[in-house]
Design a protein around this nucleic acid. Sequence first.
DNA 1: CTTGACTCCCAAAACGTTTTGGAGAATCTT
DNA 2: AAGATTCTCCAAAACGTTTTGGGAGTCAAG
Lengths: 336, 336
Amino acid sequence: MANLKQLAQSLGLSITTVSRALDGYADVSASTRERVREAADKVGYRPNASARRLRRQRAELVAVTLPSDPGHIGPPHFLDMLSGCAEHLAAAGLNLVIAPVPRGESELDICRRFVDGRRVDAMLLVRTKRKDERVEFLQSRGIPFVTNGRTESLLPHPYIDGDGFAGFRAATLRFHAAGHRRIGHIAGPQEYYFAHDRCRGWRAAMEECGLATDLCAEGAPLEQGGYLAALELLRQPSRPTALVCATDEMAIGALRALREVDGGNQISIVGHDDLPMGAFTSPPLSTMRMTGENLGASFASLLLRAIAGEPAEELQELHAIEFVDRDSHRRPAKAA
Amino acid sequence: MANLKQLAQSLGLSITTVSRALDGYADVSASTRERVREAADKVGYRPNASARRLRRQRAELVAVTLPSDPGHIGPPHFLDMLSGCAEHLAAAGLNLVIAPVPRGESELDICRRFVDGRRVDAMLLVRTKRKDERVEFLQSRGIPFVTNGRTESLLPHPYIDGDGFAGFRAATLRFHAAGHRRIGHIAGPQEYYFAHDRCRGWRAAMEECGLATDLCAEGAPLEQGGYLAALELLRQPSRPTALVCATDEMAIGALRALREVDGGNQISIVGHDDLPMGAFTSPPLSTMRMTGENLGASFASLLLRAIAGEPAEELQELHAIEFVDRDSHRRPAKAA
DNA sequence: CTTGACTCCCAAAACGTTTTGGAGAATCTT
DNA sequence: AAGATTCTCCAAAACGTTTTGGGAGTCAAG
């Protein structure tokens, strides 16, 4: 219950001086500054956040929208990432609020609410679509934001993304080098940038190798989606001998499908995300993941720099993809 | 960029009237109210959150501290829970901020910062300890809060918890009924309430059955902790034939230990939390979990009621534990 | 014509900070 | 000794709401 006013009164100083002393301004003498600081410490004074926010015209808040509908919120690392991001933002005086999207509302509605109510200084967007209305909205409003994943927006915007194209191209070429010729792709919904990007990587590799690109099935980015897509590919007259899956969850679903089909256990498979449970599937799932330490810190840094006004072009990070080799990609090329 | 002032000016009304019209007070005529609402809609007016918070003396924020050190943040459901909680809080105009604990700071420091800076209206605490300084601090400050997990605090406080005692007692009795006599317990750090509670449940069952309670090993609530604890129990002259593990993560570590030891694959095991990856271990891990739909909504409801001033006694939820039977608890009682 | 009740509206005072634009005293310059 | 500069401090004005305590009108009852 400590006010600036009360603190000032108890010290026989003006509010102004106390405020400036605590903020370390040079126009208050060293001795008063010390006196004020001690008194503030003693009563445990902390400036009222709402008042400062109002005066400073800063919300001291960043929001991250949590998509609820399609399936999952993303890899389990996701919470770790948010936690790291929140920690680094906190060091700069910003807090991270999580904004799930209730049924019946769009992510755009949420953005609008946060932005128009001046509740946030910036936003963090995940699961970007190729054409993402949230991005367009925030750009039109001039609110700083960073996305996890690129978009096809005309204006550049800050993002962190994995190079899915290169990763999936490399994975496909690796299967080719191992002798595979019928390499299928289990794709995520193509409206998502990451799904499209990974699909393009597979397609590019197939074309480079002079192979047909018809072994592609799309599904929801969930186990069930991968399961159904795999069944579809296995029904083809000429089955794939290897599968490149857009996500680990889909790959795990595909593994289930392979178990149900004659000779399915001879088909190689690789996923993406490095889900912890991939180490426990049978066979253990080979996968890929984005490189980079402490992603949360990177997001926080980009957010802070975006708030500081740095141009978007300088706030884009494209990370390489690395393989996480376990067993599922090692099945012989001819057996299926 | 829409102010109440600007909106009022454009309508030829006073700020007061516009504000009250939007809030639906009866002392503004129906026609003006409509007129005001239309104009507000048109310019997309949203009250400035900071200003309202200052005036109302409400932060419109709830913080949840994310423990970072011991191991994990909890089950993967955790993010879903937070998301559900945030969604229901949002319906009441509150946002949820996540507050990870940086290295070198205690959770208490974080609480203090949020509380003394009047940044939050309430707090959500997870991973309670038996004697939890955060709880004591918040109680002394009179800030509403809800914990995930009980404590041994003298004053009652709102919580949601699973009945670990009953669950672990039942699991142990079930092993006994299946013929097991040497039933071990892999315990979590006893400073945590949940770990102590579960240990007590196991111990109670053992005593009811007239069995010795020396087959107990404690470890960090992580895979590695379970692994080491299991090795310790397996070194005993008289090995356990069944293991009741405080968490699934520890159980998965214990499974690894069992694989490395002669005859270990004949020892039954059960965990707690229902981690998704438990379905993929070999054998698939039998486990337990707290009953209850949409936990996040329950937390949100308790938080709102705590803010509204309901007494703590009425804000305590103890949920039953249910078994999730897979294969790992079915090994024969005599074989080990 | 007065009184009281009722309806619709508003000026002004908060809420607790930060920041602007000096004021007064002391010190330095010339 | 006058002017310039520096050093400390402060009163007052924001920031944009919500809320308090009325103030005009209108109307019906006395």
